[in-house]
Design a protein around this nucleic acid. Structure first.
Lengths: 220, 220
DNA sequence: ACCTGAACACCGTTCAAGT
DNA sequence: ACCTGAACACCGTTCAAGT
């Protein structure tokens, strides 16, 4: 990945290295185990060097969170794209992927949704990354509405309700509040499908005559 | 509340004082602003005194979280009890209360659901307090099923789905991801009602002939 | 431009000692 | 039984100084 072979006194791409080291530390030990000094150590640099690239610890955390959001949205987006043309399947597939992210990366999920980051004062790039997740939901909802499969209600209302459901389940699992129902990867997948199916019934168009009609879709 | 007036060398009820001071600190500055030393200072005691009452910092945090869970469940339970006999209203009222808790006490909500606490190793009292929240949902769902208003599906499935939805919304709001939709107290209440109503339609019994029949209810 | 080392004010935790 | 003070190994952050 490096464009040049030299790496003398100047590290080269210290910013990226610090983000990477920080992500790894968070995955392994959680936010409480993340110290600026240890990140610097892991990158092989003095403990004050990070201040050339980040304003403070919160700024590094924001950069790590941004990467986390991108991974989350990417995964769910890819899952949805595998079912283009079938909004119901898109919804379930993206939901299951979202939930699995929380199970596979619980500490990252806590970083993104545990109140660690103040979104009001967050860097623009982080805000944009977090909005992308919501936009994905909106796109799927709109596809379903155009196809006549989903209710013709305000997109925002349907999106907030379903996103809340999926997000809440992911959070409850990754916090360990549902260990009895969702211990294994397989159980999580089953529970995710079940909940997203049930959420789906809440937003389905009960007027079935229009279903099946093919409308123009917004691509993901 | 104190049973005796004396408070000489021994503090008297230091444990309770520390929990109270800790709760206050968390509400004001968040978990990051909570230090054992400052809690001790606030209680007017040396920085090592807390170790007589708590194993370590995590143990104090668990005690604070337990109080938080009790407040959360109490609030939602009281709201539900105001609508005994009407499971739909019970569901919406308890949901709105749950969501409002997250808005009024965002830092406490983050403590309870932000992955700070390891539920696998948590003290028994904390585990029990967290289960009570889930049991409240189950009770309301069962009331609705008995009355024939809710679908006759597995209670756990309906409870997990609806709790996820309510919890997810509360979390998204308290993290600041929905500031545009839910800025004021009034907007939060409206959004909460909307989402819980929509979640409700997903679990309503569509076979309407049985509705209205009065069955025996489990009291809260 | 980028990195370092000393310095400061904080932590959590331990332990011998006091009342 | 309950609390204290010194001590230890850590933090985040600042700042003058080095390459």
């Amino acid at each position: 990945m490096s464009t040049s072979g030299q790496r003398p006194y100047h590290h080269g791409d210290l910013r990226r290295s610090l983000i990477q080291a920080g992500s790894k530390l968070i995955e392994e030990k959680g936010l409480a185990g993340l110290s600026l000094r240890e990140v610097a150590r892991a990158a092989g640099v003095s403990h004050t060097a990070p201040y050339r690239h980040f304003q403070d610890k919160a700024d590094l955390i924001a950069a790590i969170a941004q990467v986390g959001f991108e991974q989350l949205t990417d995964g769910a987006g890819k899952a949805a794209r595998r079912h283009d043309g079938d909004p119901k399947k898109q919804f379930v597939a993206a939901s299951v992927q979202y939930i699995l992210f929380g199970v596979k990366h619980p500490r990252m999920a806590h970083l993104l949704f545990g109140g660690v980051i103040n979104m009001r004062t967050a860097p623009r790039a982080l805000k944009q990354a977090s909005w992308a997740a919501f936009q994905l939901v909106e796109t799927i909802i709109n596809n379903g509405k155009r196809a006549g499969v989903f209710r013709n209600r305000d997109t925002m209302e349907l999106a907030v309700t379903t996103w809340s459901g999926i997000h809440g389940l992911a959070q409850l699992i990754s916090c360990g509040y549902l260990t009895r129902l969702a211990a294994t990867h397989r159980q999580v997948e089953t529970l995710g499908k079940m909940v997203s199916q049930l959420l789906l019934t809440g937003i389905l168009n009960t007027d079935e005559k229009s279903e099946g009609t093919i409308h123009q879709q917004t691509s993901l």
